[in-house]
Amino acid sequence: MNDAQMIQTDRTGLLTQEEIRQIDAELAHIPYKSGAAIDALKIVQAHRGWVSDESLQAIASYLEMSAEELEGVATFYNLIYRRPVGEKVILFCDSVSCWICGCDKIKAKVSEKLGIDYGQTTADNHYTLLPVPCLGACDRAPVMMIGDDLVTHLDEEKIDQLFSDNQSGGDQ
């Protein structure tokens, strides 16, 4: 056997009781443990904001997968964050209807207010800004999500209001 094989370090201990409870609930209707990979990533991310290497290893070990197998899954999906994100993720829709309705300008405004571009997090760790494919609210374009909240009919004024109390020093 291989060294790596013999060192069977069980990392599941890094998961919390609550996370394990939620993962187990998913496993109840999935025939293979690895089948809950995406659910487990989402569950852990819901608790921790993002999926660190340690979290990923812990999940992999709980689902009896290798870190590689889980990494392949984690890096495939847009909404699994493998880097830290701020307290709230802004999912900014940049797809076609929002684009027609001028989302580029709004995006520039958001960036200016918060001082961050796509993929970045504000200095106060409040927000991370990410682009997202069409949010399915094209009749209310332009739109974005702040955390779980959908914000519609965006214009520059609205951005000003939304982030008016932002302390992150965007308005340089």
Partner: peptide
């Protein structure tokens, strides 16, 4: 879903459901 347009394609969706 964990987010990916291709998940809408029915067989890709099945793979996503399989984790």
């Amino acid at each position: 879903s964990a987010g990916r347009y291709i998940c809408g394609e029915e067989t890709a969706l099945i793979n996503a459901l399989e984790g």
